[in-house]
Design a protein around this nucleic acid. Structure first.
Lengths: 248, 248
DNA sequence: GCAGCGATTTGACGCAGATCAAATCCGTCC
DNA sequence: GGACGGATTTGATCTGCGTCAAATCGCTGC
């Protein structure tokens, strides 16, 4: 399989030119923003969407502190959001997979507080914020969808916060793996075999652990027969064990 | 000073009947929802606001899993939001002070995922969700304000998550005290002398610590001359030390 | 005033995970 | 191919905070 055509395992249709821009025919449209919209509404949305240039791994999709110009949606590849601390080092706040919306935290004061960095070659769509506002006036269902997305992000952040506060390293890591697996599955990819697009350091940051601990846990899970690791490739062998560990 | 008139230190104007319902004359209107609205817009909002009955300490403002019927705003008193785990025990997600909006996390699927419990006698306003939606159609600036609130809640939750993952117990506790102090100050109350309306257990839950650790840290801070404690009353003596500890 | 009970404090101890250090792996550039 | 540098693994040690246990405080009702 040509690696160019399977960035993060996401299949690009051969012959579908990259310049094509149609939410209705996009393979992500069940996951992405238009999921709840009627076909005529989707057509209005399409008119507002701009296709971004591709980004190389390591390039920034949004810069910390930059004014909010648009919402972004990952088309292929993946990215991480990082807050920058006073000392200049970064804290990984989260990861974005295809179909996920980037930039929701910038409504608060019109600026992006995190930088968003491509973890691998990244393609994306964007909806300029002015057009989005006009569209929200015209389409109450789009407005609702945006509210839902924001609300879900709150829910998710709070869940992660409680996880960070209350569970041990193994639980957190199991939860991370299961969450990643679940998100891939929703995109029609394998829930049990995948490549982690982020470094051990990024995972550790995200979970509030050290690199060493992440490495040791991975080793421990392997020893227990719950998974196999080869570099960044993961094969989950015992989902039940991971689910039991995470708790409910 | 009559305790009835100073719930959480928030002064109720004598002679202002509790049945009064006017956002424009409400002492909280610089903090609450209408902060960004023009006077005519506020009048429209007023028409949608319903005054809730008072709640006794320990009573629930919203029940976990109940359908979202309204957004609530604390008028006086304070409350905590708790997630209920599979085992039935609660995890404190956050606290609400006068002027703060309760229920934003319910947009995601139309149900409240947390219960919200009064920590002391509580009075509140509510905006039925149907009316709110109509108002958002009519008032783009209200829609923006709601987006801002949601976005700020994401930001806050993520900040707390990173805090839980990366800093030690002392740092977390200093951050908690400073946050509480800051929120009181915004309400025109003392930033250095206040009563914590929640139990040590609630604080511990919220910070991902144990009761014993909270107690010990309070003791340690006292020994270092940074604050004085008498039951739930706190007097901060050295804000700079706390700020330095929290980090930036 | 006193009994009773939950909330809080204090002390002793153990462990999970951080920290420090060194070895090894892997991709990349000459 | 060989050398370099960053990423990852592995090992040894240290420590902050959780856990368990007991004492003390402060409110409520009698």
């Amino acid at each position: 399989m040509n690696e160019q055509e399977r960035v993060l395992g996401y299949p690009l249709r051969r012959g579908a030119p990259d310049t094509e821009l149609s939410c209705s025919r996009c393979a992500l449209n069940r996951i992405c923003l238009p999921a709840q919209l009627t076909p005529p509404e989707v057509r209005l949305l399409e008119g507002a969407v701009v296709r971004g240039r591709g980004l190389a791994a390591g390039a920034r999709l949004v810069h910390a502190g930059s004014p909010m110009r648009a919402l972004y949606v990952v088309r292929s590849g993946s990215a991480k959001a990082c807050a920058i601390t006073g000392n200049g080092d970064e804290r990984v706040r989260g990861f974005f997979l295809p179909g996920e919306v980037v930039g929701l935290d910038a409504f608060a004061d019109g600026r992006h507080l995190c930088q968003v960095v491509a973890l691998e070659p990244l393609r994306y769509c964007m909806i300029p914020i002015r057009r989005l506002e006009k569209l929200m006036d015209a389409l109450p269902s789009l407005r609702c969808e945006i509210l839902r997305l924001l609300s879900r992000a709150i829910e998710e952040a709070q869940r992660l916060r409680l996880r960070a506060g209350f569970s041990g390293a193994r639980e957190r890591f199991a939860d991370f793996l299961l969450d990643f697996s679940h998100r891939l599955e929703r995109r029609g990819l394998s829930a049990t075999q995948f490549r982690l697009s982020m470094s051990r350091g990024d995972i550790a940051q995200h979970l509030g652990l050290t690199i060493e601990t992440v490495s040791r846990i991975l080793h421990a899970f392997t020893r227990e027969g719950w998974l196999e690791v080869h570099q960044r490739h993961i094969k989950l062998l015992n989902l039940q064990a991971l689910i039991a560990l995470r708790g409910a």
